[in-house]
Amino acid sequence: MKHLILIRHAKSDWGYDRPDHDRPLNARGRGAATAIGAWLHDNGHLPDEVLCSTSARTRETLTLLGTHAPTRLERALYHAAPDTMLQLLQSAQGNNVMLLAHNPGIAALAKALVRTAPDHPRFDAYPTCATLVAHFGIDTWKDLQPGTGTAHAFVVPRDLTDRPTP
């Protein structure tokens, strides 16, 4: 059995005159990443391996999640297509793998991997810091195929706060 934690980076800051790859998180994003990290810890969803895009916002999100698992920073995950993400996952070695990347690829990958989408109104949009926890009845990530996962949990930062919905 393999477990996947699939996270889109937290909300980034557009107020800097930097290339897209170098944009940091904004205050809301930092709060969201911290909240998702607490949720992961509280629910026992702890990775033993992390695959993370090299962008500033994904690396900052990872830091705020509070995980200390061995991490592979992968430039190929920066705005990657779902097929690229799948190939990188198929090279993973851990039992509980976290993949941290960008939309639209991460949303498409989430939809492709699970047999049945979680019953959540924001799953299709996969907003910033959205997190899917899925289980796969495989012995090795090399055997990972679309449509074989079971969605165990799906959460967005707004689920974890008392902020009103606009």
Rank of each mutant, 00 (worst) to 15 (best):
M85T: 09
L46A: 10
L46E: 13
G44M: 07
T58I: 06
L62C: 06
W39A: 07
Q87P: 14
R57T: 06
L100K: 01
P104D: 08
V97R: 00
L89Y: 12
S55H: 07
T34A: 14
V50E: 00
Q90K: 15
P47G: 04
L64R: 10
L46K: 13
D42Y: 08
H45K: 10
I106T: 13
A81R: 08
T34H: 14
E60K: 05
R57L: 05
H45V: 06
T71E: 10
L46H: 14
G44F: 03
L73S: 10
D48N: 06
L73T: 11
A80N: 07
T67I: 15
R59A: 06
A56M: 09
T58S: 03
P70E: 15
R72H: 13
R75Q: 11
P82K: 06
A81V: 14
A80G: 04
P47K: 00
Q93P: 05
T71Q: 10
H45Q: 11
N95I: 07
A81P: 03
T71R: 10
R75V: 11
L51A: 00
A92E: 06
S91D: 14
S55R: 04
A38M: 08
R57D: 04
L62Y: 10
T61E: 01
G94C: 05
Q87E: 15
A33K: 04
A38C: 08
Q90S: 08
L86I: 15
L86A: 12
T71S: 10
A69F: 00
Y78K: 02
H68S: 15
T58Q: 03
R75H: 10
V50M: 02
A32P: 04
L73W: 12
V50G: 01
A80F: 01
T34F: 11
A80E: 05
G105I: 01
G29D: 00
A101S: 15
A80P: 08
T58A: 04
H41W: 10
L62F: 09
L100Q: 01
R30G: 02
D42A: 15
C52S: 13
I36A: 02
A69T: 05
G37T: 01
A69L: 01
G37R: 00
H102I: 06
L65C: 00
R30Y: 03
